[in-house]
Design a protein around this nucleic acid. Structure first.
Length: 504
RNA sequence: GGUCGCGUACCCAAGUGGCCUAAGGGAACGGAUUGCAAAUCCGUGAUUCGUGGGUUCGACUCCCACCGCGACCUCCA
């Protein structure tokens, strides 16, 4: 079965062909920066990368997936190329210090806000926690294989080596200001990925390049590889003086270190196409002498919230943990973030989250029924049942440029059909579909102190309602139910008694 | 100014030249069930695919223009 995927580099759908016949598919994803909590837009990109990886695995590939955690504090303004503004890690430290003072620091957080490494570790740990809840496989693997989620502050020697190699090869130069720049004119293919060729790049159109820095560069698009700055918050010794690496450098260096000079897949958000990935290509290809860095570039479009651009000022800015604390299950959030095709803008809504939860609950109920059937009915391999038939379509859909909507439709259709086929094989087929969806393992709201308080309250009310119902005191019973509704709790009466959940 | 993606029912969304008088899910509505609800189960939904032209025997699907939304052009997933 072929696996088709859209490649930003060629702007077309391609049949995926692994670089190597044997061994794993090599996949590098641009991960989070850790000077704040990752928001759901970040997670849409990371989860789509995870979906791609899982889809490849369903198609029989072994995937070595690496995702970096950027713990170098980049600058707040205009810094990528030139290094102006303030270090974001310093801003984060100050924010934590303020939170500490006002008592808003999250429980159990003992951190030295003046230490940028501690700030980075604090947010990195929170990211990993969120990512594991959401089923990001690479974050789950990281517990056993920490090298799969490398951090640039621990790979500075590799970055310096890469810069040395580029300088020696004539692809980079030290300018009058002591900064090492990559020379875009030394790489004729510059612009191939993004379409921003040197002719198309109009000087200053983005309005963020200061004339002062431009003056020392050979070409306005030349970007920084190493900036000497003895006063910088995070700095390392180098042949060009104490300073810090340019922000495109880490991905090239770490991908090479962990996956090799040429890799199968590279992913990121659409905003990474230019300049970040364009610059990575330039660095990596010039250093390796190969025509390609990544064979396939995979980019996820941005997420909107309730039809608007997500922003803190509009109040529609969500982190994963914000939603978890409202009782949203990781499964529902995961599905809401990946169900819209990765190459279209998706619109995150609370209603969408509820839709996903309904769908997941129906799948989960079908699984429970299958487990029961597998335990009670003797094997019967006469014919494939609905799940086995759905799996064929599911696999094909997922291998068609990650057409998850079509894949889910196949599963939904199967769920509406009468159970048939060998129950164990049917269960295996359903679980194979879930190996891509990744929802069954995380379809529970997360526990928190606030939830525990609520649970205690709810238990008391449920007992009271039960007593009223036994006494056929319907007025009291309904009153208690209204009280629960006010608390944001939805109850379900079933044969095994009453269950409840927080309304989302 | 340049480069690029998208626009299908109330919402999410598949379909990219005839099988489309357009999948699937949610919401809504009707029915079963229930003390009444919720949950569950059954049923109902676009003669139409942003707008206007064109190509074609035939267009949601190709081309052109326009409108709208979004991304990038050195912070950004």
């Amino acid at each position: 079965m072929t696996f088709r995927i859209h490649n930003t580099l060629t702007k077309s759908l391609e049949d995926f062909r692994a670089l190597h016949d044997h061994g794993a598919v090599t996949f590098y994803s641009c991960g989070p920066t850790v000077y704040d909590d990752a928001h759901i837009g970040n997670f849409r990109s990371f989860l789509n990368a995870d979906l791609l990886r899982r889809a490849l695995e369903l198609h029989g590939y072994t995937v070595k997936h690496v995702m970096n955690i950027t713990d170098v504090g980049h600058m707040t303004e205009d810094d990528a190329a030139d290094g102006g503004g303030e270090d974001k890690m310093a801003v984060a430290g100050r924010r934590i210090a303020e939170a500490k003072k006002s008592g808003r620091l999250p429980a159990g957080a003992e951190i030295d806000a003046s230490n940028p490494y501690a700030v980075a570790d604090f947010y990195a740990d929170r990211f990993l926690e969120d990512a594991r809840h959401l089923g990001l496989k690479v974050a789950i693997e990281e517990r056993v294989h920490p090298e799969l989620m490398p951090r640039p502050t621990r790979c500075v020697p590799q970055m310096i080596a890469l810069v040395e190699q580029l300088v020696a090869g004539g692809f980079a130069y030290v300018a009058k200001d002591g900064v090492v720049y990559f020379s875009v004119q030394s790489f004729p293919a510059y612009g191939r990925l993004s379409g921003n060729t040197l002719e198309h790049l109009r000087e200053g159109e983005g309005g963020r390049i200061s004339a002062e820095h431009q003056a020392v560069k050979r070409h306005p698009a030349d970007f920084m590889l190493w900036k000497p700055d003895p006063t910088h918050l995070m700095r390392w010794p180098s042949p060009w003086g104490d300073g810090y690496p340019g922000w495109h450098l880490e991905c090239s260096a770490m991908a090479k270190m962990l996956l090799g000079e040429e890799i199968d897949l590279h992913s990121g958000g659409e905003d990474n196409i230019f300049p970040h990935h364009e610059c990575e290509v330039a660095q990596s290809c010039c250093a390796s002498g190969r025509p390609h860095f990544a064979r396939v570039w995979f980019h996820t479009r941005h997420l909107q919230v309730e039809g608007e651009k997500m922003s803190k000022s509009k109040g529609n800015f969500f982190t994963a943990r914000d939603l978890f604390s409202k009782g949203v299950t990781p499964a529902a959030l995961r599905l809401e973030l990946v169900r819209t095709h990765y190459r279209t803008n998706s619109n995150f809504t609370m209603q969408g989250l509820r839709d996903c939860q309904r769908m997941i609950d129906r799948w989960a109920a079908a699984r429970v029924a299958l487990v029961e059937r597998a335990a009670s009915v003797s094997p019967n391999a006469a014919q494939d049942g609905p799940m086995q038939r759905a799996l064929v379509e599911f696999k094909d859909a997922v291998g068609d440029d990650l057409n998850l909507a079509r894949a889910m439709a196949a599963l939904n259709t199967a769920i509406g059909e009468t159970a048939a086929g060998d129950a164990k094989a049917e269960l295996a087929a359903l679980d194979a579909m879930n190996s891509v969806l990744g929802v069954f393992e995380r379809n529970e709201a997360l526990a928190s102190a606030a939830n525990d308080d609520l649970a205690a309250k709810v238990e008391v009310l449920l007992e009271r309602r039960k007593a009223a119902r036994v006494a056929k005191d319907w007025a009291e019973s309904d009153r208690v139910r209204d009280e629960l509704t006010v608390l944001g709790v939805r109850i379900k009466d079933g044969p095994q008694g009453t269950t409840w959940e927080r309304a989302v």
